[in-house]
Amino acid sequence: MAIRVFIVDDHPMVIEGLSSMLRSQVSIELAGFATNAASCLGFFVNQSVDVVLMDINLPDNSGIELCALVKAKSPITKIIALSNFDQLSYVERMKESGASGYLLKNTPLAELMEAIETVNAGGAWWNYLEKFTNQMEAKQVMMLTRREKEVLGLIADGLTNVEIADKLSVSSSTVDSHRKNLISKLHVKNTAALVRFAFENKIIGSHI
């Protein structure tokens, strides 16, 4: 049974290109297309498809919101974002809105096909996301920057603002601003508590 695919893109040329590309595939049945969010939603009033290839940049609404709306109307429909945006934030937003995959528009046909099939089978296609290496969630226990550790170490050594300022050759107001930042960041009440924190975590002037 062919996978029913719907295309949403504001560029007719893209729709045309994609259509002719997908028509050549036996496993795909092109169910329709829309050039804006409204007509897309109109389609989903009484119909449904297996996979939607959705552009993010649409004239009347963003793909991010459209994605959520389509998912609300037709939960079984899988959505793949097909966009020119190559920023992580867009990928994440689409994921949050219920999309199952994210592809850039210059993705080769083979990968597009693979993605459609994977998604249709209930999988996800976040290869693009992998490009962003990271450990975004890797919450560090110590949120202190090197400079802040240096200042904290000197505070723990019992130096005054002026002495620290002298030592680091900055103004004492800069030191004070560091001190306030530290208090705010570490959720402590005062400098004494800062010093305690420094000792508990072994951040002392000489170590830096």
């Binding site: 560029h11 040329m13 045309e16 290109g17 994609l18 940049n57 528009k105 210059n106 080769p108």
Partner: peptide, 14 residues
């Protein structure tokens, strides 16, 4: 321009 290029890219691939 990006949209057009995307279209061109897809057409060419076709």
């Amino acid at each position: 321009v990006g949209g057009l290029l995307s279209g061109v890219r897809i057409s060419l691939a076709n």
